[in-house]
Simulated scan of single mutants.
Amino acid sequence: MKSVSYKLSEFFIIFILVPVSFAIEYPVVIKVIIGLLGFFYVVFVLLRIEKNKFKIAQNLNWKQFFKQTLIQLSAIAILTSLYMWFVDPPNFYTVVVNKPLLWLMILLIYSLFSVYPQELIYRTFFFQRYQSLFKSKTVFIILNAALFSLAHLFFRNGLVMVLTFIGGILFALTFQKTKSTLLVSIEHAIYGCWLFTVGMGSMLGFPS
């Protein structure tokens, strides 16, 4: 299972074939089954093949992480607020103002059941399985972000693709630096929750 040919086939199926197929019309139940099987496969490989212990590292630089994340969040907040103010004012902070309980529920569900599985697949699994196949770290980071963006193709929204590509770059850089699924998941959750808060949740498939 560690051969290059096997990994390339695995790579194509998990990160290209499946995401593209999700953009095609066929029964949702089949998509759910495929997604769950893929996730269980990823967990199996991480545990049994890559020998991942899923332990929180003791030497994480939390201060530096939150400093960098808050700086980036500030830039994201300014840009997305300006976008919503000029392009989509009716949805600007609409959920948090008019439906605060729904807003809290969205943040909780998203953070627990969407963010962590995504980071486990697109950062932990992706880096451990394929980083050794690339000589250029820059190419590897860009490829990771592009495939993360591709995973959102089923939304059929150009802005979502751009946002997830930028997010993919940020998350990949964080994981490359920290090797921590926990930290990159927290970062992902913070940025994603902000998008829902500012009013971009509807384009990401959440009720508004």
Score class of each variant (00 low, 15 high):
I142S: 08
Y130F: 15
S149M: 08
L153I: 13
M161E: 11
T80F: 13
I186D: 02
V97Y: 05
L133H: 10
L120K: 06
V28C: 00
V139D: 03
L182Y: 15
M84C: 05
L159G: 04
M161H: 10
I14Q: 01
V95C: 11
Y116M: 12
T178N: 08
T69Q: 11
V95G: 07
F171A: 11
L182R: 10
K7T: 03
V115H: 04
F11H: 10
I33N: 04
P207I: 10
I14K: 00
A77L: 12
S9A: 15
F154Q: 13
P27L: 09
R48P: 00
I16M: 12
F66W: 13
L104F: 11
N98F: 09
E50A: 01
L150M: 09
I24V: 13
I141F: 02
V20D: 02
L159P: 07
D88M: 11
M84G: 01
F22A: 02
L107V: 11
L102G: 04
A145C: 01
K55P: 02
T94V: 12
E25N: 08
H188Y: 05
E10A: 00
G168W: 01
A146N: 06
I33W: 02
K135R: 13
S3F: 02
P19A: 07
I142R: 06
V4P: 01
L101M: 14
H188L: 00
S132I: 07
V28I: 05
V29R: 11
P100R: 09
A146F: 12
L143Q: 07
F66R: 08
G168S: 09
F40A: 13
G158F: 13
L37W: 00
L82S: 12
Q128E: 15
M200H: 01
V43T: 07
F86A: 09
V45C: 06
S132L: 09
K179N: 14
I166A: 07
F92T: 01
I71P: 07
Y116W: 14
F148Q: 02
V20W: 06
Y110K: 12
G35R: 04
T124W: 04
I121Y: 04
L47H: 08
L112P: 09
T178L: 00
R156V: 15
L101V: 14
W103Y: 14
M161V: 13
S180V: 06
V18Y: 13
H188I: 06
E119C: 09
T80R: 08
A77C: 08
L150Y: 11
M84R: 00
D88A: 14
N61R: 14
S208W: 00
F44T: 08
R156C: 11
S5E: 09
L153C: 04
F154P: 02
A189I: 05
L183C: 05
V162W: 08
I121Q: 08
E119A: 05
L133F: 10
Y110H: 14
